[in-house]
Design a protein around this nucleic acid. Structure first.
Lengths: 234, 234
DNA sequence: CTTTAACCTTGATGGCCGTCAAGGATGATA
DNA sequence: TATCATCCTTGACGGCCATCAAGGTTAAAG
């Protein structure tokens, strides 16, 4: 397994770890020597597409930082349906919940492609938090963002209908990327799960948006937004 | 008014503030003298039922701790509907988002009854965070919980139907309180908004639950759960 | 205590969208 | 490049639940 190889090299290979630690907002403000110290405690994990970083029910004692690739985090509801929580891109991290809360994951993390990850053990991280209070502040800031997003999304689920949610999603993405062309980071099936609907409805609504002249589907994953305001006014 | 008394006495009356600071999990682990130091920087706020602690769009520069009373935090969606995010009881705090993120509230906080609140200015708090790293850890822990809850709720909104959500809500509350009798902390209108549905549907579903013999509505606000398993199996 | 506004309940109606189904397109694997 | 699984699309159908409406009840305010 590739993972074990990587692990075996861990001790000697500071370069790779430094790189990993230095791309994360929560660590990249440290001095070089401090960062090296953090890097020394990290371990590498490498996953192939479809492999699980962790499952619900697993004990959780590590913070995971995505170095390269993409990871989807999702939950299973009572009735067995998959609900996509978010997609981790390089520099994003996860596993924090369990670092402070209980130590059982309640979600799944799965590599969407070949992915490299650094992990930090709970104990090591907590030591760093004590030593470098600024790390806490960075994590707090990140948590704030995520909490705000989660609450926004909750409001959206609770009060808007599916068509509006899809429109809002597209509009937001386009505004963030400052380009009218948007590349979907996931399949329509996953997008459906993320937005709390079904692939069929995604298809139908996008087709409708295209009929109305609001968007253009150039390709399965490429969408060009022609009328941003219309999307926001649904 | 009790509040204004408290305010008037603010400078000289350390006792009241100590009490306030000491009931919050994020501060109550401090030494007495440290807690006094924190208490000195707090200010008292008293609200009558219906008064707003802050509105969306307000600048945000304080952490608010509920000392006595109840506060509901909600958002307004695009179409103007109210979505209840959570209810703050004594010891709960809010306003943290804006302490680390941007400085504009995107939600409303409204007193549900006569309520006393302590506030700490952003600058003061950040100083304490640097000085006493444990405070950060406590807040991180609290954030973890909230984030987990929010994501759970998201999953619930996205994947379960209304009847299931209401059943789950009741079951959870009963399990937490370890009593089969549950006192609703809010009106059915607010509960509807919290669960992403309408008051009409709440009425109908509760009536159905009663017909099925799963619950008993003893009073507008008192519900006795007779068959917990049934509620979880909907 | 009286008055009034808010809340709650129950019924009737309609539309959104989830589900099932089948054919076509895409992408992964060897 | 060939094969196959997975994903996407479009149609038909039906059920859940939001909406509108009206009467009853509770709680607030003076």
């Amino acid at each position: 397994m590739k993972y074990q190889e990587a692990c075996r090299h861990t001790k000697g290979n500071k370069g790779a770890h430094q790189l990993c630690v230095s791309i994360v907002p929560i660590f990249n403000h440290l001095q070089n020597e401090e960062m090296e110290e953090v890097a020394k405690t990290t371990r590498s994990i490498s996953l192939k597409k479809g492999e699980l970083l962790h499952s619900a029910g697993d004990a959780s004692d590590s913070l995971y930082i995505v170095h390269q690739g993409k990871v989807k985090v999702y939950r299973l509801s009572e009735n067995g349906k998959e609900q996509l929580i978010r997609i981790l891109q390089p520099g994003d991290f996860t596993g924090e919940l369990a670092l402070f809360k209980e130590s059982i994951h309640d979600d799944y993390a799965e590599a969407m492609e070949k992915t490299d990850i650094c992990s930090i053990q709970r104990g090591d991280l907590q030591e760093f938090l004590q030593r470098y209070p600024n790390i806490s502040l960075k994590i707090l800031s990140e948590f704030s963002n995520r909490l705000g997003q989660a609450e926004s999304q909750m409001t959206s689920f609770a009060t808007e209908d599916v068509e509006t949610r899809i429109g809002l999603y597209l509009a937001q993405q386009v505004e963030e990327n400052k380009s009218t062309e948007y590349h979907l980071p996931m399949s329509r099936k996953d997008l459906a799960s993320f937005l709390g609907t079904t692939p069929e409805t995604i298809s139908r609504k996008l087709a409708k948006f295209e009929d109305e002249g609001w968007i253009e589907q150039e390709d399965q994953r490429r969408i060009r937004v022609l009328d941003l305001d219309a999307l926001l006014l649904i």
